[in-house]
Design a protein around this nucleic acid. Structure first.
Length: 454
RNA sequence: GGCGGCGUGGCCGAGUGGUUUAGGCACGGGCCUGCAAAGCCUGUUACAGCGGUUCGAUUCCGCUCGCCGCCUCCA
């Protein structure tokens, strides 16, 4: 029996992924902090996990996909104060921007999208439990998790605590009353002008890491199957989430998956370097499917260079897939070629080898086209069904639509067919020029002239 | 300072100890077409450098060079 193998950050190697419950799969992916519009790095994360989710479902698993919205956090407060608006107004705006962009990219909505602000009470309870169990302590400015109390801290950082400390000593200031420089805030006591919630330690707000621990355990239960996010979240965010869960006496995620960076000119794209591209800009300039294709054509853990050029090339590749969809849309229904599906599963089970799966997709379309050229409709139909099946399993929509053909255009097309039948090629070419001038792409086929929008 | 990753053909980007090519885009040739478009066939240029292991390495090991990331908010 074949199983999905994924690179588990906690293990640092490929592992067999066997669900907690047979036939069911639970995954939690860290979602956005909604204080600004999303950039293409966020989009890569969303696409990678959308592909994983779709593939698991395609494989027959009943998937529960949870992805949070962080709607209270330092950057949110800072931005809201800057604009002199309530923080809720800010987060509502950018949550909408997030989902609008996700919808455009065909990223399916999560089954649940817990909001931090709706979970504060449960977080407070959880923090209280950590204090009771001796894993947390109160200071003048908040409540902190004591990492010394948790054996195995540093699992996701993949290095011993000592070396982390050595590296950090140069720039991590030892806070006055923190016991270890790596102790992190569970609760932040309010300063003037900050939104607050009540707690046994006075009014304040939760630390960043606690929300994901509490919400994932609440919605997916102890020992859920997979926790994911961008590579940078592994440490300290995911490390700390895990520490909190274990400290609270819970089993946490069975597997950890992290996607690689979007790079610009060989450097990590980030706001601090100012080299980021807003997702909204990309979506205005390019077919959203092109970005999905680009992401599929590289491995999810590799860095990915995104430029206008790579996007354009992906759009051209996409055009040939759409042309294929048009060409094969009238073929008789057929079962998908089994060998192709087997190869697809093999590729995807091998740590989500989407580049290989995509190569298989292109190869399959080529073979189907060749079969059609040879007049072998049965083979073509079988291969075309397989191609559409695997494209769909990766969330890549192929479009067979030509666009609405108005009556005047249809009349021109008929005239051109008549001219060509009469071998009046000068007239036929004139009509083609008129059609092209009106923005149509003209293709002559065995069944006459066809037009479509580019 | 600690830990980790990368360097593939014109570009993007997989993969592998040797017998067959990733794939895409671009470019050249051919077929098809009235001409195109689409499609098919086909060609070109590879595995940073230097050593080592091996019958054989792009693929394992070491070193060198170059680049990058994490250790701090970050997808």
């Amino acid at each position: 029996m074949k199983v999905l193998r994924l690179h588990d950050t906690a293990e640092g190697r490929l592992v067999d992924v066997e669900p907690r419950e047979p036939g069911r799969f639970s995954m939690y992916v860290c979602g956005p902090t909604v204080y600004d519009v999303p950039h293409i790095g966020h989009a890569r994360m969303a696409l990678v996990f959308d592909v994983l989710r779709r593939y698991l479902e395609w494989s027959g698993l009943d998937v529960t996909f949870v992805s949070n919205i962080t709607d209270i956090e330092d950057k949110i407060i800072a931005r809201a104060n800057e604009r002199r608006i309530p923080f809720e107004e800010l987060t509502t705006t950018y949550e909408k921007a997030w989902y609008d962009a996700m919808d455009q990219m065909g990223v399916r909505r999560p089954d649940a999208d817990p909001h931090a602000t709706a979970y504060v009470e449960k977080m407070v309870d959880f923090i209280g439990g950590l204090i009771d169990r001796g894993h947390a302590y109160e200071t003048s400015d908040g409540v902190y998790f004591s990492i010394e109390t948790l054996p195995g801290y540093g699992l996701l950082a993949r290095q011993p605590l000592e070396s982390l400390r050595a590296g950090a000593s140069e720039r991590l200031e030892q806070a006055e009353d923190k016991r270890s420089p790596f102790d992190f805030a569970l609760w932040k006591k309010a300063k003037p002008g900050e939104p607050t919630w009540p707690s046994p330690w006075g009014p304040g707000r939760p630390g960043w890491h606690i929300e994901c621990t509490v919400m994932s355990l609440d919605l997916l239960g102890d020992g859920f199957d997979l926790h994911g996010g961008g590579q940078d979240l592994a440490f300290p965010h995911h490390e700390n989430e895990r520490a909190q869960a274990l400290g609270g006496g819970h089993e946490f995620a069975r597997h950890w998956v992290h996607n690689g960076w979007v790079e610009v000119e060989g450097k990590k794209m980030s706001k601090s370097l100012g080299n980021f591209t807003d997702l909204t800009d990309l979506l205005e300039q390019a077919d959203a499917r092109a970005y999905r294709l680009l992401i599929l054509q590289s491995h999810y853990r590799s860095p990915l260079e995104v430029t206008g050029d790579t996007i354009e090339r992906a759009e051209r590749s996409l055009a040939s897939l759409d042309a294929f969809a048009r060409r094969t849309s009238d073929l008789p229904r057929a079962d998908a070629d089994v060998t192709v599906l087997e190869r697809f599963v093999e590729a995807m089970d091998n740590d989500l080898q989407t580049p290989e799966a995509t190569a298989l997709l292109f190869d399959t379309t080529t073979r189907a086209n060749a079969a059609l050229d040879a007049g072998d409709v049965d083979t073509a139909a079988t291969l075309a069904a397989a191609a559409k099946e695997i494209a769909g399993a990766m969330g890549l929509e192929l479009r067979a639509t030509a666009g609405e053909v108005d009556a005047a255009t249809a009349a021109l097309v008929r005239q051109r067919d008549e001219a060509r039948a009469a071998k009046d090629f000068a007239a036929a070419d004139r009509i083609r020029e008129r059609l092209v001038a009106s923005g149509w792409v003209v293709e002559d086929t065995a069944s006459g002239t066809k037009v479509r929008r580019p």
